[in-house]
Simulated scan of single mutants.
Amino acid sequence: MTRLAQRNSQFLNLQTLLARPALLSAGPASDPVPGEITQWLGKLAVLKGLPFGYLVPDEAMLPPESIRFFVLDPNWINALLEGATSIGRSCTLEAGIDAQLVARLYAAVSPTATVSGFVLRSNVVTGWPGLEVRAYDAAGHRLDAVLRQEQLSPTVLLFMTTGQISYVDISEPAEAMHFGVDIGQAGKSLRYVTVPPSAPAKTQPGGQIEGASVKLSYRAAGGGKRVLKIADLAKTLQAALVANSANLVPGTAQQRPFTPAEFALELVEGVQAVRFENTDKEVSS
Rank of each mutant, 00 (worst) to 15 (best):
M1Y: 05
L4M: 11
R7Y: 12
N8W: 14
Q10S: 14
F11I: 11
Q15S: 11
T16E: 07
L18S: 04
A22L: 11
A22N: 10
L23C: 06
S25L: 01
P32N: 10
L47V: 13
K48E: 11
G49D: 02
L50Y: 06
F52P: 00
V71G: 00
P74M: 02
W76C: 00
S86Q: 04
I87T: 00
R89L: 07
R89H: 03
S90Y: 04
T92L: 15
E94H: 03
A95V: 12
A95Y: 08
I97L: 03
A103S: 05
A107V: 06
S110E: 01
S110V: 02
S110H: 05
A113Q: 12
A113Y: 09
S116D: 03
S116I: 01
V125L: 15
E132L: 15
V133M: 14
A135N: 11
L147M: 09
L152T: 04
S153W: 01
T155F: 04
L157R: 05
T162W: 12
S166M: 02
V168S: 10
V168W: 10
D169G: 14
D169Y: 13
S171I: 05
M177Y: 14
G180Y: 15
I183R: 10
A186Y: 13
P200F: 09
P205I: 15
Q208S: 12
I209E: 01
G211V: 07
S213E: 07
V214W: 14
G222Q: 08
G224R: 12
A231T: 11
L233M: 08
A234L: 04
Q238D: 01
A239G: 06
A240S: 13
A240E: 08
N244A: 14
S245T: 07
A253S: 05
Q254P: 00
T259P: 03
P260F: 06
P260K: 07
L267Y: 11
G270W: 03
V271E: 12
R275K: 08
V283E: 07
